[in-house]
């Protein structure tokens, strides 16, 4: 593993997230109010590009840089966790205007209050880890 490669990819991600304005609380409000194509355009073109990328990888059985075939693991089919977990996350996404990536990108931008969001997110993660077996999956 080349550590620098992942740090550089992360830096690129941070720049893209900032310049795309996907880290903006205002933009997330605009999205959930369906008042602009902006965020839908970003997600839509990202997914269209991603679908083409994955199709090409599968069609030509492309390999990664270590020469291993690129695998796509099938997600398990139980649906409750996706719907319930997804809805809980969506509430937090609209409240903070940030999903997990942007939380850290915003911290880098100098919004130190994001440390509180990170603290909350870790607390939520720990509680989920503790309660997991008792929740509908």
């Amino acid at each position: 593993m080349k550590p620098i490669k992942y740090i550089l990819t992360g830096i690129l991600f941070g720049i893209i997230m900032t310049k795309s304005e996907a880290v903006s609380w205002y933009r997330i409000q605009e999205m959930f109010r369906f008042q602009s194509i902006f965020m839908y355009g970003i997600i839509g073109t990202a997914v269209i590009s991603g679908v083409i990328l994955v199709a090409v990888i599968k069609r030509f059985r492309l390999k990664d840089t270590d020469g291993l075939p690129i695998q796509f693991s099938k997600k398990d089919k139980r649906w409750k966790k996706y719907l319930i977990g997804g809805s809980i996350f969506g509430m937090g996404w609209a409240l903070t205007g940030a999903c997990p990536g942007p939380i850290f990108v915003l911290l880098g931008q100098g919004y130190t209050v994001m440390l509180m969001v990170i603290a909350g997110a870790l607390a939520g993660t720990i509680l989920y880890g503790a309660l997991r077996n008792r929740l509908p999956q």
Partner: peptide, 13 residues
């Protein structure tokens, strides 16, 4: 908000 993000994303995987 952070709490819901942590709990929800881990629940939804």
């Amino acid at each position: 908000g952070g709490f819901l993000i942590g709990f929800g994303t881990r629940y939804a995987g």
